[in-house]
Design a protein around this nucleic acid. Sequence first.
DNA 1: GCCAACGTTGGC
DNA 2: GCCAACGTTGGC
Length: 138
Amino acid sequence: MQYWLFKSEPSTWSWDDQLAKGDAGEEWDGVRNYQARNHMRTMKIGDLGFFYHSQKDKEIVGIVEVIAESHPDSTTDDERWDCVDIKAVKTVTKPVTLAEIKENERLSGMVLVNNTRLSVQPVSADEWRIICNMAGVK
DNA sequence: GCCAACGTTGGC
DNA sequence: GCCAACGTTGGC
């Protein structure tokens, strides 16, 4: 079981959009970055991830689950790009902001802090627990 | 809106 | 295979 963080601009694909898809979920398509793609290729069904709003909000707003492993991205003919499908699991009780994450010394190693531009990131089990606590997620 | 950081592209 | 130029992302 691995943990991840999916980053999206709310104006492009928001948590509300993801929620609206329900259990059917949706492709996490449009990724055109090798590192992010490679992370998706290692994902397994049942892996969990945070859903992060970049730009205006800059906070973790929900939890998602991987429901389909890596497959060709349907939004391009370029065979280099794959993606997984994810569904919304729950909305966090209390969104965790980037500022709060930066303030927490135990989260100082997070990719979110050190490589702000990577759109799909791994999250360690420790980081996962800490943030779930902060977010009020059981 | 600006700018720093980063990734990708393409000429050599 | 190197590196300069360029485009994009995302925090501030």
